[in-house]
Design a protein around this nucleic acid. Structure first.
Lengths: 216, 216, 216, 216
DNA sequence: GATGAATGAGGATTCATTCAT
DNA sequence: TATGAATGAATCCTCATTCAT
């Protein structure tokens, strides 16, 4: 965790620093990310960095935490109701996830990197992954109870599929909608009809599959 | 490309080197991967490395190529028939993919990293990603022709979903089957009934979705 | 340019460093000169060098600049008068040049090397050479106006001859006067009668040539 | 000296090698010149080099010797007659020198470099320089005997001036005549009227100086 | 609390030379 | 005699971290 000195910093200076550090860790490996570059860009003294953070790893973990928190906040804003429709809820989640991805692309990038790289303690990663899967698994179980999800669906496997799709969907949308009106300018992606349509289709695929349904 | 010198090496020495280099690039960023460490572990002189490869990047690209080739070989062993059942073909692909992942986990890891990191020329990545998506999109179009895939399915989106699932499935299986009998010892994963079952279920989900089908 | 850090150094440390760097670049090519050797001799950490200078070239150019400045200072101390006698002015210049050569033999050596080697940007060299020649050409033109230089003298060619003689004279003097009383100990060379005599003779040769003048 | 194996080489291979080595040492410091590059360009095995030469320095000294010999041959082709006119003889020399410079620019460059750098044993250089000066000094003494050179001319100093001018004249001509018809194509420079004119003027300056001769 | 100079290990790469074939 | 792989020291440069001011 950052030292108290960091939190005593004026808010704008602190945020500026985080902004720059974020960019550095989004563009680089943990090892390749350079404290020297960060402090140079942030315009603070090299020594000051070590007044704020224990060391490089301390900063890194803090950024990861920040990402996790922001994401959690977004998701918790769409709380699951006991009786709510599971697919409707998934839709909310998807929207939240895509929004997060698009508004915090760098936080996401750090998260991806952390997951890919083996530089983090394995339990850290396993835990994160597990968290996501358990969440979806719970959701699917609930769907079974409600009768909206088939009883013979393997909950763990379905959770895995949901989790990877949710994880990658933001990127896919960025690719697909690149050049469209209204993208990349910080406004919500949902001004775009296409984004909504895509999410509809994803959900439809998840619910009914791609198979040809028997007519009649 | 490696220099001829490298291919003139005794097979065991060459393979030992590749094994070690693979591990290094699987565990590290391109930038963080260390030639010094590789040669130290491989027990060769630092100068010798440069008899074998042009430079660090040369080795890196060679490893990526190796992965691509191995993968291509696996997949081309399951050629698509014009009239063949699309879902049957997907099953073959899935098996090939999982097999690759499980028998070359480090090659896969390097591939993942290459895709994540921004260290590669962007066109290289876009091309690879595009290739994968086009492949699946073609498959889905074929399914539509055969009548096994619903006509209103968005081909591009479905291809995206297939591609991320195929990409991540190997990892999922490793996680899920870890500790099971017969895994991680080099034998084919398919001795395990569970692996087959999982693939069945994935395909089923893709075809029919997780939704409860209307009884009647 | 060196970084501020370098100028913040205690004068003695800074001068010691320059002294050592000077010796290294006087004895070696740009490429052959070794930062490692310099820092070892100067007793500073390798990393510290890069606190002072951007890189090897930065140091090199700084040394060249130093030489140019010192030389310019010397020469500007003997400003040309519009109406002054050209040969008298040449004598002053010669004295300044020889003085510089003898008091900064290593700076000179670096300058020579820079001119000889192809390691510098060509425009840099051409410019320097051109500068020197234009200077002398102007002087000769002035002499023509004054009537002290023959009108049919090729200005460019004469400038070339002046420039190479001025360039090499210092060395010649060092050779010729080596071992004489008063040389090489930092005192002005002009305590030595011989040095003055030599310059007189050079000027005489330039003005009247070595040819036998017709008696009468 | 090269080993016998070198002289046993087929003439074309040997000359090709020398050509390439020449270029390398003309473009680089002794230390910066790279045997690796030479053998690569010459298409011979690295090990073979050490069959031909003791080491890098062996090759270097051999090239210097070659240059000295070629030059000596040129000059000896214009032998001094006891009774000949000194200035006429100088003209022959000058022509020979310029010719050498223009037809062997790389040998010259190596020679320059050798003189500049301190990498050679000092006695080697002093000897070469001394040789040149003694030669000119002898010539001037002869001129005095003939009455064509003024008796009060300092022989050593005049020899110095001749020697630097002769040394640099080739370069000057290359600069000045660059772009003229007939230069740089391997034909003799003396097809060009200008080159002859320049040499005339140089000699005139040396003989009569640039000073305005008293009219009448 | 802030500063920024000092440090030395570690990075990739090049090189002349040796030696077994 | 020819080869070319092996070697390890040397090159410049970057980095995270410390510490005196």
């Amino acid at each position: 965790m950052p030292k108290q000195t960091f939190f005593n910093l004026p808010a704008d200076k602190r945020e500026n620093f985080l902004h720059i550090a974020l960019a550095e860790f989004a563009d680089n490996d943990f090892k390749s990310a350079s404290i020297s570059r960060i402090v140079a860009k942030a315009g603070i003294a090299k020594g000051s960095f070590y007044q704020y953070f224990e060391n490089k790893e301390d900063l890194y973990r803090y950024l990861l935490d920040l990402g996790a928190q922001e994401k959690a906040a977004l998701f918790s804003a769409a709380p699951i109701g006991q009786e709510g429709d599971v697919f409707a809820y998934l839709r909310q989640l998807m929207r939240a996830g895509v929004t997060f991805e698009l508004s915090n692309p760098r936080l996401s990038q750090i998260g991806y990197r952390a997951v890919q790289s083996n530089s983090l303690p394995p339990e850290f990663l396993a835990q994160a992954r597990e968290g996501s899967r358990q969440f979806f698994a719970g959701l699917i179980a609930q769907g079974k109870n409600q009768g909206s999800v088939a009883a013979d669906v393997d909950e763990d496997l379905a959770a895995f599929i949901f989790s990877v799709i949710f994880t990658e969907l933001g990127r896919y949308m960025m690719d697909r909608l690149a050049g469209d009106e209204g993208w990349g300018d910080g406004r919500s992606p949902f001004h775009s009809v296409t984004a909504e349509t895509i999410m509809d289709q994803v959900l439809h695929l998840l619910e009914f599959g791609i198979g040809q349904r028997e007519q009649a």
